[in-house]
Simulated assay, not measured.
Amino acid sequence: MNEIMLNTDAATLSPIALFLQADLVVKTVMLGLLAASVWTWAVILGFFFRLGSTRRKIATFERDFWKAEDIDAFHRLHNESDLPIARVFTAGVAEWRRSTVGGQVDRGGTRERLATAMGAAVANEIDQLSDRLNILATVGSVAPFVGLFGTVWGIMRSFTGIAQAQNTSLAVVAPGIAEALFATAIGLFAAIPAVIAYNRFSHGINRIEARLNRFADGFHATLSRQLESEVRR
């Protein structure tokens, strides 16, 4: 008989049973947190593959660029690319052409405009690359509190039930407390991967930004040397 009671209690405290036993408010909280968890994992997987692919393509582009002997030919080959480093490169070439189109070239002004144009391009690419990171940050910071709200609401409901039943035995208290705590568990289930992924992806984006800035500095130095050689002529 005791064994049957233990099995019944275990079934009552299963995740599905806890959800079905919860009231409408707690169910809404649980469903919202589950949706946030699914959304978080979709963002994580998409970002993981996107970031890895971007890093590999940037490395290939940079290697090919420094091997290229003709910058104009290389630009014609890559000016339609949507790769972040290609857009930084295109921004530098476009500013170079605008600044050197006339007969008299202002070397100092040209250098400053090149640095500004490529710096702005780097910032724009990083903004686009990190566009969905705010989703992970939001879920990571808000989900535990939403789950806590569900827990508080469920505990309040349990205490109300205890008062109505006038029975404080563990068998009466446990299901309500368990379903309340289950809301917090779901909140943590959504928040923990979001926080870990946010920190990891932020580090990856910072590395890409540093690489784009190094490329921009190197390209800027190349154009500065070309500017000096053209002025001497």
Rank of each mutant, 00 (worst) to 15 (best):
T116R: 14
Q128R: 12
I126P: 03
G102M: 04
R111F: 03
S130Y: 14
E95F: 03
Q104I: 07
V105R: 09
D106M: 04
P144D: 02
D127G: 11
R113F: 01
G147A: 04
V101E: 14
A137D: 02
E112M: 07
S99F: 02
S99H: 06
R111N: 11
T116W: 12
G102Q: 07
G92H: 05
A123G: 10
R98H: 13
G102T: 09
A137Y: 07
V142W: 00
A91D: 01
P144T: 00
R132H: 13
Q104N: 13
A143V: 05
R111Y: 04
A94S: 14
V93A: 02
G140M: 09
I126N: 09
D106N: 14
R107F: 15
A91L: 03
I126C: 11
G140I: 12
A91M: 04
G103T: 15
M118I: 01
R111H: 11
V139W: 10
T138M: 06
G119L: 01
V142P: 02
G102K: 08
I135A: 12
V122N: 05
T100I: 12
A120F: 04
L114Q: 00
V142N: 00
L133F: 12
G140C: 10
T100H: 06
T138G: 03
G147Y: 01
N124M: 06
V101R: 10
G103K: 15
R107E: 14
L129T: 05
A117V: 01
G102F: 06
A120G: 09
A123I: 06
A120Y: 05
D127M: 08
W96M: 14
D106H: 09
R97A: 15
R97L: 15
G119Y: 00
T100C: 13
F145S: 05
T138R: 00
P144I: 01
G92A: 10
D131E: 12
A123M: 09
A94G: 07
S130G: 15
V142L: 01
T116I: 10
G92Q: 03
D127L: 13
E95G: 06
S130K: 11
A91R: 01
A115R: 10
A120D: 07
R98S: 15
G103P: 12
I135W: 11
R97T: 15
A91K: 02
R111A: 09
G92R: 04
R98Q: 15
S141Q: 07
A123P: 06
V122I: 13
T110R: 08
M118R: 00
V139L: 12
G102I: 01
G147H: 03
G102C: 05
I126K: 09
M118P: 00
G103M: 15
T138Q: 00
R97I: 13
